[in-house]
């Protein structure tokens, strides 16, 4: 044990505002990336669940293979593949375009800017991975809706698509909500792996701040706390939703 390190800690006090700012920036990036991944993987997950339950063998099989591949390999390896591997396989022109700057602007105000390749591949990797989980949870939700619901809706004159959209899917999502919220928490935590491919999220910023301040405890303490706050907020949200659902189904 190194006593001088501890005394350094006690003497140096807390992090300078600059580094707290870095950590907060990282936290916002973590939240932003998580939100995008949650939205995209939920939308794709629905399409995915529909494919698996479509009754069309090739489609259902393809979806099954996808789930097996993406759930049975580590996210870290997948992210390495997307960021370091895929560009080596892409044609030169595509790569240059992806790395370039493109902006959607009206006059001189920039509305949307093309994100960095780090951000792009982290989001793609996380969405590809998360969809395999979110999709399966939505599918279990779909299976939890009794077949009679669909039949009744069709009898009432709904087309199959309308029956899915207005009758089956809302119920399926309600059933799937608890496991889905668990997945959303996993997504938030999984964004931390983005640090390995240069995504400037909370863990990346923590390492950066640590390398400049050497205040290991303070930096990782604050970062850990920020993760806990984010997860706790999701947890509160989950409780609220569950209570509302319970009231509705009564």
């Amino acid at each position: 044990m190194d006593s001088s390190l501890i005394s350094t800690f006690l003497a140096d006090g807390f992090l300078a505002p600059k580094y707290l700012g870095w950590l907060l920036d990282g936290w916002l990036m973590t939240l932003w990336a998580s939100l995008l991944v949650v939205l995209a993987s939920t939308l794709l997950g629905m399409a995915f669940a529909a494919a698996r339950e479509s009754g069309r063998a090739p489609l259902a099989h393809a979806a099954g293979v996808y789930v097996a591949l993406f759930r049975n390999t580590p996210l870290l390896v997948q992210l390495f593949f997307w960021y370091f591997g895929v560009p080596a396989l892409l044609p030169e022109g595509v790569l240059a375009w992806l790395n370039g700057t493109h902006a959607l602007a009206v006059g001189s105000t920039e509305l949307l800017r093309w994100p960095s390749f780090e951000f792009l591949s982290a989001i793609v990797g996380l969405v590809a991975y998360s969809t395999a989980y979110v999709g399966e949870d939505i599918r279990s939700g779909l299976r939890g809706v009794p077949a009679s619901q669909r039949i009744a809706a069709t009898a009432l004159g709904f087309t199959p698509l309308q029956a899915l959209r207005y009758v089956v899917l809302p119920q399926a999502l309600r059933i799937a909500m608890p496991p889905l919220l668990g997945q959303y928490m996993n997504i938030l935590k999984n964004t931390s792996l983005g640090m390995a491919i240069g995504l400037m999220e909370l863990s990346y910023r923590a390492r950066q701040a640590e390398a400049e301040t050497w205040k290991t405890f303070q930096v990782y303490g604050v970062a850990t706390l920020l993760y806990i706050v984010a997860i706790a907020a999701l947890e509160v949200l989950a409780h609220g939703l569950q209570r509302r659902n319970a009231r509705r189904s009564r």
Binding site: P87, A88, L95, S116, A196, G198, Q208
Partner: peptide, 18 residues
Amino acid sequence: LVAYDDTPFAFTALRNGN
């Protein structure tokens, strides 16, 4: 600046044009 875990990773990113 984009920071990586080690120099070879940074070099791969250079090769890839990132």
